[in-house]
Design a protein around this nucleic acid. Structure first.
Length: 330
DNA sequence: TTTCTAGCCCGTCACTTGCG
DNA sequence: CGCAAGTGACGGGCTAGAAA
């Protein structure tokens, strides 16, 4: 049922001992036949991510650039790091003599939990491979100076960016726009619905917003000079609108600082808020991680297909060469 | 038609990793 | 060193197809 992911040690990806060049010579007196095949391994010193390139010169004189049948250690389908290899060994040792050597369960667990680098990293290393593995694009929305997700509308007098990367624009008159950085799915502006917009009481006013398509741009007005603070509960993310107790410089990311908290209730609210924010961010991170994982697996599958074709070609060529050799020895 | 099962997706937790 | 991001693991919900 559950797929078991095995920890592989590093030896699985170690390349065979490679000579720098392998030349298959003709026998004396067979000058009518050109050198059968010359195989030069150019990648014996190639490190991880730089697979060995093998040049195969065919009898016809054609040179084939073969890569990947016998490759140097590289990010492979079964990815492992040197550190993992050491750790797996240590785990095995620990299982043999855990009691005598005092290896704790937590240590073992920690060692087992050691993981490979991120999918993006692996895939980008693979992408240096000329077999056409595409790169996972780096997110760039947060690095760019201005939020591209906010179309021209009321000129915002205040522009905030939440720690989740969302942009909150508050225009003159209190119009609020919440914009996600351009990523998957939900994008652009989102609707905010006040649940007690009439109340101008101090403290928190919970508003809800529903994700919508980028072309469904909407805005709403907040009475007074309130500001959006934050976060999410359950399935429906919610934002808090608070009347600022102190004047804050515009452009400052809103956050309830510990100094503004007075009562235990506010502390509890803050803790809840932080937790919900963390959950929301982790939720998004998990989505993104799964998306990358799928992409990674797709790339690996395509790589397998390419390598299978190469392998098949090389096997066929080997058979051809064997036939030629045997016919000449007869 | 109902039940079972496999597969997929999602949210959450716990932990590692990388960066400032 | 602290924090945010990334990711494995786990469990739950949903759905399509097979079996009873």
């Amino acid at each position: 049922m559950e797929m078991v992911e095995s920890q592989q040690d590093g030896s699985a990806t170690d390349s065979v001992a490679e000579s720098d060049a392998v030349c298959i010579q003709n026998q004396p007196g067979q000058s009518q036949i050109p050198p059968i095949a010359q195989v030069s391994v150019a990648g014996s010193s190639a490190g991880r991510g730089s697979p060995a390139v093998t040049l195969v010169q065919l009898p016809s004189g054609q040179t084939v650039h073969v890569q990947g049948v016998i490759q140097a250690a590289q990010p492979s389908v079964i990815q492992s790091t040197p550190m993992q290899a050491v750790q797996v060994t240590s785990v095995a040792n620990a299982e043999d003599s855990a009691d005598s050597e005092g290896v704790t369960d937590s240590q073992k667990r920690r060692e087992i939990l050691s993981r490979r680098p991120s999918y993006r990293k692996i895939l980008n290393e693979l992408s240096s491979d000329p077999t056409g593995v595409p790169k996972i694009e780096e997110e760039k929305s947060e690095e760019e100076g201005t939020p591209s997700g906010i179309p021209a509308m009321a000129v915002p007098t205040s522009l905030y960016q939440t720690s989740t990367g969302q942009y909150i624009a508050i225009a003159q008159g209190g119009a609020i726009q919440i914009s996600n950085p351009a990523s998957d799915g939900v994008q652009g502006l989102q609707t905010l619905t006040m649940t007690n917009s009439g109340a101008s009481q101090p403290g928190a006013t919970i508003v809800q917003y529903a994700a919508q398509t980028p072309d469904g741009t909407q805005q709403f007005f907040v009475p007074g000079s309130q500001v959006v603070v934050q976060a999410a509960t359950g399935d429906m993310p919610t934002y808090q609108i608070r009347t600022p107790t102190t004047a804050l410089p515009q452009g400052v990311v809103m956050a309830a600082s510990p100094g503004t908290l007075h009562s235990p209730q506010q502390l509890a609210e803050e803790a809840t808020r932080k937790r919900e924010l963390r959950l929301m961010k982790n939720r998004e991170a998990a989505k993104e991680c799964r998306r990358r994982k799928k992409e990674y697996i797709k790339c690996l599958e395509s790589r397998v297909a390419v390598l299978e074709v190469q392998n098949k070609k090389l096997i066929e060529e080997l058979e051809t060469l064997k036939d030629i050799c045997s016919s000449k020895t007869d």
